[in-house]
């Protein structure tokens, strides 16, 4: 409960900070929506030309992937944008400031920054879901729940990859690749990938749990599948946090004087 209160507090502070520059906030968010919408045009043309299904997915299925993935990724960047900066903070010794904070260390670090442009992703995901899925209240609830779990999974994956920096030096490039792979594996039909890639999508890069299982749930709800999704999210997140705290024991202070505005 305390964790949730901190999360909400950070969210409010970050949002009000973004709203200080309303024109910029709206410009970026709308730009992101327009930019993402270009892909809808592509898929419309592709399915119109080809007909039938691609990788076992029809147009509505693909649109679901394109709504839940930006929603989850956007929500992660709105709430936990600082997960992108973890490697830099570890390598340069900038974690010192956060070590002095009361409460949960990792939560304080991740929530310290929020991406303004990611609001565009969140808005785009919701609009696309509303326009293409003709969903009832139950499906909406599932979409929002799966999106929230997906956001946690994206953050956990980033924490996992950035935490390798405690052991092997900078893993900035590896972490950037992880983000790219999460998004790419989530937005294309699962059926196009070979078995080896699908195994990766179920483990190290959990794209299957971010987009493909939510699709199966919205199309054909099964409580066990939902439990599997929640269980995997909890375990994966615990593993990522565990690795971070294990690595933290090897952390060396930068003795840097940092001003936080």
């Amino acid at each position: 409960m305390k964790t949730l209160r901190i999360l909400v507090k950070y969210f409010k502070i970050n949002l009000s900070s973004a709203m200080e520059y309303r024109a910029s906030f709206l410009g970026q968010a709308v730009g992101m929506v327009v930019s993402n919408a270009a892909f809808v045009l592509f898929w419309m043309i592709a399915f119109d030309r080809i007909g039938g299904a691609i990788g076992g997915y029809d147009f509505r299925d693909v649109m679901f992937l394109w709504s839940v993935t930006p929603f989850a990724y956007g929500l992660c960047m709105v709430c936990f944008e600082n997960c992108n900066n973890l490697t830099r903070m570890i390598v340069t010794g900038e974690l010192d400031t956060y070590l002095l904070y009361p409460g949960r260390l990792l939560l304080n670090i991740l929530c310290a920054r929020s991406s303004v442009i990611a609001w565009g992703d969140v808005g785009y995901g919701i609009i696309l879901f509303a326009v293409t899925q003709n969903a009832g209240p139950g499906q909406w609830a599932l979409f929002l729940l799966c999106g929230a779990l997906g956001a946690v999974l994206v953050a956990a994956t980033l924490v996992l990859f950035h935490s390798f920096s405690f052991f092997f030096g900078s893993t900035e490039v590896l972490s950037s690749l992880a983000v790219e792979f999460i998004v790419d594996f989530s937005i294309y039909p699962k059926g196009i990938y070979p078995i080896a890639v699908r195994v990766v999508m179920l483990t190290l890069i959990p794209a299957t749990f971010i987009a493909h299982i939510p699709l199966e749930l919205v199309r054909d709800f099964h409580p066990l599948k939902l439990l599997l999704l929640i269980g995997f999210t909890v375990l994966f997140t615990a593993a990522a946090c565990g690795l971070f705290h294990l690595g933290l024991k090897r952390y060396e202070s930068g003795n840097a004087i940092v001003t936080r505005l």
């Binding site: 520059y21 410009g27 970026q28 709308v30 730009g31 327009v34 930019s35 892909f39 043309i45």
Partner: peptide, 23 residues
């Protein structure tokens, strides 16, 4: 002109992608 213009480059890259790169 704009204090924040990231959206411009995003739209540019998507137009590139749709108009000839991917198909």
């Amino acid at each position: 002109v704009w204090e924040e213009n990231t959206a411009v480059i995003l739209i540019h890259s998507k137009l590139l992608f749709i108009l000839g790169v991917f198909v």
